[in-house]
């Protein structure tokens, strides 16, 4: 177990193994996304209230899921790199920040697009949307902090600490934002309460969630591989790889 953990920390090992696994992962991700999207967009029944516009949840919900999960994954990577000084964890932390931010932005954007036909406005200041926006700011903060340092190790450690502080803070932020909005607009907007979904609508959603998770993993691995090559460009194995 420890050996495996140790190996996982080696960029060279990660590069080789991820290179082998990537085609399968890409296949899984694409299949899930295509199946989920076609099923969800073309074959799932229309919502009796919202019509066809509800179909954007097939992108909105999965990206919203991964946005929050991605922050915690990033923070865990940060913790590992701080405690065990594992190189790969630092790389993961670095590459997952912009990807997470992109996912959060996508969730916000699709939410706005969904909001216009459904509630007549692109943006409402409700608890869920505001929390999502703050999550985007948290991501951008980590990204900005990392960019500010010239020394990579310091950038990673600082970002890891900030991410960890963020994980403690996120529940408090969510709770406080939620509390604030229920204080002011008691149950005027019931957008967050979902009625139980019809299985024909739910199945494609679950497939899309799995597909977006796989896509996220793929994106992180791809970026990590680029980052590995950039960092290890002076080492023998990368030089050999380039010469091939």
């Amino acid at each position: 177990m420890w050996q495996f953990f140790h190996k996982l920390g080696s960029p060279k090992w990660f590069y080789n193994i991820s290179g082998k696994l990537m085609p399968y992962l890409a296949f899984v991700a694409i299949t899930l996304l295509v199946v989920g999207a076609v099923w969800g967009l073309a074959f799932a029944p229309m919502d009796y209230k919202q019509g066809n516009s509800f179909r954007i949840i097939y992108i909105h919900v999965p990206t919203a899921f991964i946005a929050l999960a991605g922050y915690y994954l990033m923070a865990i990577a940060g913790a590992i790199s701080l405690i065990w000084r594992m190189k790969m964890a630092g790389i993961m932390l670095k590459v997952s920040a912009p990807i997470g931010a992109a996912m959060t932005f996508l969730a916000l954007f699709t939410g706005a697009v969904w909001g216009k036909p459904t509630w007549g406005t692109y943006w409402v200041w409700d608890a869920r949307i505001t929390s999502m926006l703050i999550l985007l700011f948290l991501y951008l903060g980590i990204f900005a902090l990392m960019q500010a340092f010239t020394r990579e190790e310091l950038a990673e450690k600082s970002a890891a600490i900030l991410a960890l502080v963020g994980t403690v803070n996120i529940p408090i932020i969510y709770k406080s934002v939620d509390w604030w909005y229920t204080l002011h607009q008691p149950a005027t907007l019931k957008l967050t309460e979902k009625p139980s979904m019809h299985p024909d609508m739910l199945w494609p959603l679950l497939i899309m969630i799995a597909g977006v998770y796989a896509f996220y993993a793929l994106a992180v691995i791809l970026h990590a591989r680029v980052e590995i090559l950039r960092r290890e460009k002076k080492t023998g194995w990368v030089q050999a790889l380039v010469k091939q």
């Binding site: 948290l138 903060g141 900005a144 900030l162 963020g166 803070n169 932020i173």
Partner: peptide, 22 residues
Amino acid sequence: LTVTLRNTGMLLIFIILPMNVP
């Protein structure tokens, strides 16, 4: 976190503001 950096005003606001929300 930014002690080794210079002119951190904007950066400081950027990284800390979301934490101030509660």
